[in-house]
Design a protein around this nucleic acid. Structure first.
Lengths: 238, 238
DNA sequence: GGCTAAGAGATGTCTAGTTGTATAGGGCGA
DNA sequence: TCGCCCTATACAACTAGACATCTCTTAGCC
């Protein structure tokens, strides 16, 4: 067996044994290389394999970390991404790739109970947990909710905060639909998974004061998340 | 006489004449093959024989080197592997194969003056000099020395540094026992010698501030090392 | 308190060079 | 014919070093 394979095995068993806890940072590559008595490149190969297996992940400039078990994401009546992730002891993050205003299509119009072609703001991006991409999202808001919404979405990293800025302090989930899908190349690249990997697609509609305010489409990296529906919450619409 | 034999003879006499000094790197195989006007495989056969004789050793990706004379390893009151080897002008190294926590057996408990079954950390690996394995070691530490010891041992390549990290800045040797043994297959493979070759087995107990902190078992490759006891130091126990 | 600059330290990537190993085949003598 | 020596080629595995890029912390300043 090659050197890097035995190193990978050693690290794997150490992680399995709990010597390195999920979320913990491993020693720097140079130190690990010294410990195993190999060149840094050889160690990196072992780390690469473990990263592909999902056991480790590395952040340039920061270090190598033990990947956490799948995130448990609770779908209740009030779903707040940042709060949800923080409650799980993880570090939430959002990267917004684009914000645009355009005319709604039929599906969006029906979901938001607005006329077909009415203006909507569309926000697209990636949600991260512990600095790893976990989901792609596309949120659609009626443009007439507030004249400030577009600016607020551009400035705030959090949708909840943007809505609060526009006077929408609270909102609840009206319906959630879930389906499975396979990642195409674009999605796979954004989520750092392989094309053809499993995705969990959710469509959520949020309302405030009886008015539909958001239709959120989310594609979750299947292997990194477990969605949880409990109690009476969850699937109410159809 | 075959080509490879005459090449081996040539190299042997050159080494004996001091043309290639101990520790020096030989030209790459390709260059040597060109010099002798043979294929690289033919040259490699000559090198292989000299390596089996102990005159040369090769490191994949690094080169072919002239083996050094036996290391002189001084057993004083303060024994520090890295420092000791560096003082001899060699390159010290340690490869840690495993780190584990388990319950102590009777022998270990007695040596460390702890209750039988008390938790100990056990570090096993290979000590190298000039990138060649020179000894197998097994160090046992009381687990209650410091809660950080396990992590420190995992991260540091040096036991001295790991102990220093846990606040044990200095330690001295309480006793050293030495016996001779024959290498079994496992040991021979790890030390890159032949089964049945001579081993030197030492048992050292180190203490700091009157507290036993380490029991170190070491199996030295007999032909690669000369242990030196001088003055009043060394064998104090029995 | 907040902002900026600087620096140390970490990973990412690239190039180059070296040994290890596998495969295939020619030549030669017992 | 068989075994051994040697050539030839290719690729895998590993080392070595340099440099880019990013992160994180600290110090200094306003």
């Amino acid at each position: 067996m090659s050197l890097w394979q035995s190193i990978a095995d050693t690290l794997r068993t150490e992680i399995a044994a709990g010597q390195w806890r999920p979320g913990n940072q491993l020693p720097p590559e140079a130190q690990l290389a010294a410990r195993f008595g190999v060149n840094r490149h050889t160690l990196r190969r072992a780390v690469r394999v473990l990263a592909e297996e999902g056991l480790l992940f590395s952040r340039r400039g920061a270090g190598v970390f033990v990947a956490a078990a799948p995130v448990e994401y609770r779908l209740g009546e009030r779903v707040r991404f940042h709060r949800n992730i923080e409650l799980a002891g993880r570090v939430p993050g959002r990267v917004i790739d684009s914000i645009a205003t355009r005319n709604s299509d039929r599906t969006e119009a029906k979901a938001l109970a607005i006329p077909v072609g009415a203006e909507v703001h569309v926000v697209e991006g990636v949600s991260t947990v512990d600095y790893r991409p976990m989901a792609l999202f596309r949120s659609v808001f009626p443009a007439d909710l507030s004249p400030d919404l577009f600016a607020a979405l551009s400035q705030e990293g959090s949708i909840t905060r943007a809505l609060a800025f526009c006077g929408i302090a609270d909102y609840t989930r009206v319906s959630t639909r879930m389906t499975a899908a396979l990642a195409n190349e674009t999605q796979a690249a954004a989520l750092q998974i392989a094309p053809g990997d499993a995705l969990l697609r959710t469509e959520a509609i949020n309302a405030s004061d009886g008015r539909m305010i958001e239709r959120g489409l989310t594609w979750w990296a299947g292997e990194r998340v477990t969605l949880i529906l409990d109690g009476k919450d969850g699937d109410q619409g159809s």
